[in-house]
Nucleic acid binder design. Structure first.
Lengths: 170, 170
DNA sequence: TTGATTGCAAAGCATTTGCATGCTA
DNA sequence: TAGCATGCAAATGCTTTGCAATCAA
């Protein structure tokens, strides 16, 4: 298990050394847990996960280490608009954008070379030098839409039916 | 002056009434100041502006009124990733996205029908029903790039010159 | 040994909420 | 008059900072 992600760990050590910082057990563990979790983690999320393996690690260290991972290019900070930062893998992960379901919070990642190209063209037209961008599409995901449809159907068709049997059950 | 924005004010009154709320001097003033300011205002920004005309208005009221304006469709909340919310005009303003200069904070608005269409196509492919989206391109604006270029030029050409005269001055 | 790192508590921000008072409809 | 609105202070939630103790290089 801990033998995985050797490349990412190498990148981290490189960054640590170049910046004159020090390798610590806490940083190693936080990186390890971050790497093996394929999600958009908040600092709090990661803190809870790390706590399971070392209850002595502090919230603050997780915050600081996530910032470090971002500087090292291993993590990318994303904001979905709820006021808290989330982090996702960034090393050798193709850039992508997100659709966020406002019902269930699910996120769908997508990538469009066409959109990227259009963005670059627009930036160039304004002599704007882009460093990074973020595209968020909020809405309702397929699952939640289906659920909503079924609930509506239920309302229309089985509601009277329910009334008929309701006296039998309960 | 106060005769302007009659349409927007009408929209606000409509919303107020429909929701069973009440018209107040504070709300009127906050709306007025918001409408005549064509910028991406934070609640704090608007609070300061409103304060100039009525020092008794509280920060909280501005927060609450901005939320109200958003519900009424007059304002749109945008987040540039610095942890605070900004509000821009939304009534009969075409949807647009932003480029944000990370040097000077300038924002450039843009609109691309092609990007919009591509987004819709991608959402449809995932059976995702979009309600709204936000595209932010961070980078360096034309002015800041020019400034940076000039500083570099200055460094290369006049730096030795400065050294030559430096003994004379100071 | 030296300076970076840690974890706690406290501080900082932006925003929200509780509540007594004030004011529309 | 009833109940929404206001403004203050306090509370909240996320994140950062100060600091003494600890630890890597």
């Amino acid at each position: 298990m801990s033998q995985e992600f050797t490349e990412e760990k190498e990148v981290f050590q490189q960054h640590i050394q170049k910046a004159g910082l020090k390798r610590t057990a806490q940083r190693d563990l936080i990186l390890e847990v971050f790497l093996r979790t394929e999600e958009h983690l908040t600092s709090e999320d990661l803190y809870r996960l790390v706590q399971k393996e070392d209850p002595n690690i502090g919230q603050t260290t997780v915050y600081r280490t996530l910032k470090l991972l971002t500087e090292a290019g291993l993590a990318r900070e994303v904001r979905f608009g709820d006021g808290r930062s989330r982090y996702e893998h960034n090393y050798k992960h193709q850039h992508h954008d997100h659709m966020i379901c406002t019902e269930c919070g699910a996120t769908i990642e997508f990538y469009s070379a066409e959109i990227e190209a259009l963005q670059d063209a627009i930036a160039a037209k304004h002599r704007f030098q882009p460093t990074y961008h973020s595209l968020r599409i909020n809405g309702i995901c397929a699952d939640c839409r289906r659920r909503a449809r079924e609930e509506k159907k239920h309302e229309l068709t089985s509601q009277p039916h329910v009334r008929l049997v309701s006296s039998t059950h309960e």
